[in-house]
Amino acid sequence: MRNKKHIYSYALVIPALVFFVIFFIAPSIYGIYYSLTDWTIGKEKVSFIGLSNYKTIFQSSELRLAINNTFLYAIVVVIGKNLIGLLLALAVNTKMALRGYFRVVFFLPCVISTIIIGLVFVPILHPNGILNNFLGAIGLSFLQHSWLVDTKIVMLSIAAVSIWQWSGYHMVIYLAGLQGISESYYEAAKIDGASAFKRFQYITFPMLAPTFNINILLSLIGGLKVFSEPYALTNGGPGKASQVIALEVFSKFGKGQWGLGTALNVTLAIFVLVICIPVLHMMRKREVEE
């Protein structure tokens, strides 16, 4: 067998592998090394300094804030996008007028660049912007906030813009999941007199499990890697209040602190791996059981 040509030669994998290994895997491995060095702009020699970059990261209150912000943001967008996406999917899954229009409109923002969306929301969320004026006009002035200026809520405002943009995307994935559930289950339940809520609880919810996993994983990875939303809306401000890990990597890059920046980048990779691998593992297990 060994000398005979195989019908499916591995040679065809080589181009993809070359791109992937040289330009993705190799820098990732090098990154681990560089994160342990004092690599800086203009410095002739790069020397090994052990874990000291990582110590800097976890001792600096600014960088810890960026890490906390990233987690806060990720949690909020995972909950927001999935909850709203699911509710929208359930709504537009019923037969009604304007159904096609709703799907298209809710989906529309996700074909537009996040940078553009972010910039459109800058004046809308301004303290004297249309959102606050509108809240005032309908008698909800107690809800008015300095959305992007108040350091306590700025992360939530940024998350809200992302939820605005991407809920429709998750809606469509949930919709695909809902349409994969056979009508016969619902008919049987209706005959047995199950209420709409019971039908959701005992049929829709468990049958949607794989769809939940995909949606949660996608929004989680996107949330942890977040960059464009705060970059466009606040650029990390006011002060450092809305810095996230990826933005800090960019700022360290700009300052020429490449060893520290790479350590932050590796930290982000570790967070993503540690959080997402168990989720993936769960997904696999469930698929096998099916």
Binding site: F20, F24, S28, G31, Y34, W39, A269, V272, I277
Partner: peptide, 11 residues
Amino acid sequence: GTIIPMQIMPT
């Protein structure tokens, strides 16, 4: 490669 973020500066 679908999950982990790339390492920018080494690249």
